[in-house]
Simulated scan of single mutants.
Amino acid sequence: MKTCSKKFIFEKENEWEPAGEGVARQIMGYDGQLMLVKVKFEKGAKGVLHTHYHTQTTYVASGKFEFSVDGEMQIVEAGDGIYIAPDAEHECTCIEAGILIDCFSPMRADFISK
């Protein structure tokens, strides 16, 4: 498995990968300690309830989302952020189509297919 990305990742050259119904992602850079991922949601799409051992922070670049983190529900929109501790159950529903920017530590090896 590659342990780091290219130095420069250009959106127009980086394919969107399916990540669920109405959800697609672009991996925007990583090494063993860190990963940045752009996630595009259509209105009504869901990020299903899940956990992982990674620390995650999410920035809402556009759109509006209902997020649940460890049972606490909040509506977030462009400019807002979310912190998700390791092993915290979390999910989201897209209220208005948008893009989330996820940062993971350590990197999500399960997202690297090549």
Rank of each mutant, 00 (worst) to 15 (best):
M1N: 05
K2M: 13
K2H: 05
S5R: 10
S5C: 09
K7T: 09
I9D: 00
I9T: 14
K12C: 03
N14S: 14
N14Y: 08
W16I: 12
E17L: 15
A19D: 12
G22Q: 12
A24Y: 04
R25P: 08
R25F: 08
Y30D: 02
Y30C: 03
D31H: 06
D31P: 01
L34N: 08
L36N: 09
V39N: 02
V39P: 05
K40C: 02
F41C: 06
F41V: 13
G44D: 07
V48Q: 12
L49F: 09
H50M: 11
H50C: 05
H54W: 09
Q56G: 07
Y59N: 03
Y59H: 11
Y59T: 06
F65A: 09
F67V: 15
S68I: 10
G71F: 00
G71H: 01
Q74Y: 01
I75S: 06
V76T: 05
A78E: 13
G81R: 10
Y83C: 07
I84Y: 01
A85K: 14
A88V: 07
E89T: 12
E89R: 08
E91F: 03
E91L: 06
C92Y: 04
T93F: 00
T93L: 13
C94H: 00
C94Q: 01
I95K: 10
I95W: 03
E96S: 04
A97M: 09
I99C: 03
L100H: 08
F104V: 05
M107A: 13
A109S: 10
F111M: 15
F111G: 06
I112C: 05
K114F: 11
